[in-house]
Write a protein that binds this DNA or RNA. Structure first.
Lengths: 114, 114
DNA sequence: TGATTGGTTCACCATATGGAAAACTATAGA
DNA sequence: TCTATAGTTTTCCATATGGTGAACCAATCA
């Protein structure tokens, strides 16, 4: 059906869920084991593991297992990939192709909005 | 099942599809009517209209109908909302809470990647 | 008026997604 | 060794998603 090979597809899809975004926010602070990560959420572990699988297959996180505990880490570069696409689009919106100018633009308008 | 009320959910979900991202890229250049927008894609109009509905309900685009022609427009601010969330996350990743510093940071690392 | 164009609606289908419950594996600790 | 802990696998279910074809409505235009 959909060609899920495109990295942006999987990254944006991974971000389209509050549980997964919360996991990312948490992991940005420091790596953490699975059960620690799962604590704040109401769902069972199997459901939570599916979210982790989505995050991992999108490349937003990776994990390694030592003993019986699997520790998850963030992959900041993938976040940057998504941000980069959006920044490019906003650059077009601002009527420019120069990416640095676009960043300055987004920065500026964001300050005004707050 | 999922609480789709959160705007970020619907925005990221809308972005998680190459057809919809292409429509956004197209609309950033200028508004366009439905059939013009649909031209580049293989799918039938009903399927394409569903994509437009997803984009519209996410707030990324809006449209108005004059005569029998519906013209679609981009909503740049919604794109900025997604970019803003990502920028905040990357700010944490960079070990900072200052958003301007985070933008500078993302700008810097993106130049290095190319 | 009749035909075309632009869009819409409807019924339907296959697959994906997000969740639950239960049973299981393997490492750590007492 | 026994038991608790951390995670995994499997099966199952309801709903969402992305697509189709066919019928339909409403402006234009010849």
């Amino acid at each position: 059906m959909v060609n899920q090979s495109l990295p942006l597809d999987t990254v944006f899809h991974a971000l389209a869920d509050p549980t997964r975004r919360a996991v990312i926010s948490r992991l940005l602070k420091s790596p953490a084991p699975v059960t620690r990560l799962a604590e704040p959420f109401e769902m069972g572990l199997p459901a939570f593991l599916k979210h982790l699988a989505v995050l991992e297959s999108s490349g937003l996180i990776h994990s390694e297992k030592r003993g019986r505990v699997r520790t998850c880490h963030i992959n900041g570069e993938r976040l940057a990939a998504a941000e980069g696409w959006l920044a490019e689009q906003r650059a077009v919106w601002a009527g420019r192709t120069d990416r640095l100018a676009a960043f300055a633009e987004s920065q500026h308008s964001q300050e005004q909005e707050e």
